[in-house]
Amino acid sequence: MMLRRPRQLWPYLFILPALIALAGTFAYPLAAVIRFSFYAGSVGDLTYVGTMNYQGLFQDPDFLQSILNNLKLLLTVPVMTVLALLIALVLNSQVKGWRHYRAIVFLPYILPATAIGLSFSYLLSGNGVLNTLLRNHGIGFLARDWLGSAANVVPTIGSVIIWQQLGFGIVVFVAALLAVPTELVEAARIDGATGWQIQWSILVPNIRRTIEFFVIVEAITVLSSIFTYVYVLTKGGPANTSSVMEFYIFQNGFENGAIGAASAAVVVLLVLASIFIGIYLRLQARAVRVAR
């Protein structure tokens, strides 16, 4: 068959370096990790064990605790979404100095979780700043061992995550709100709608797509990128009650030398993450269609 236009060779040459880098950084490690998940032992000395690692995972209370903690921490997503949305609506109502407020609330999002974790570990320790403040103001009964007790530690980590991610949500939502056509708001006002009615029935539905995006991006973050918080704030403690899947993988892969168990945990994490990644891909595809 004759080709009408000459076959373009150059695009393949242009994407080649990226393909090589992606193969080395993603394709090979993903294949290797799936293989490792069926083996036991150390790298030079692997023995095939079938699905033993997977069976072991679901009998390991530390792994079950880690998954459960990831699921609990997913609850931070609706909380930060609603908070960010409310604050974005306030900023969007042309409050004086809103640009400055926006710049300040975004700042935590760019800061290294390591440095922030160090700061919070002192703020939240038994005799830390928060408890000192509570005691000095006559509300000492609210003081808790925020990071050292099994009952409080996961909500505390969740709060630090919300603290850091909130500004991201606010900035994203304000940008979306600014893009809502003013005629829509004007028309509603002429029809007699009041402030909050406009907010909830006109503005919020109009930025629905942005909200969906934010929820998915944060769900992926909370499921798979919170290692630093756990490592710096608690090292998974007390007694592994604040471990998450990432931390479990790190501990087994590097501290316990259990590559097989770590790799099986990776596969479980990937299965869970792929649900959200699939939704994220669909949202991106929709965004491209909308743009065209």
């Binding site: 991006v217 992926i220 798979s224 990432e246 993988i249 994490l269 959200f276």
Partner: peptide, 9 residues
């Protein structure tokens, strides 16, 4: 969106 921890081992 892939978890980086999946690649580390």
């Amino acid at each position: 969106a892939l978890p980086p921890v999946a690649l580390v081992v």
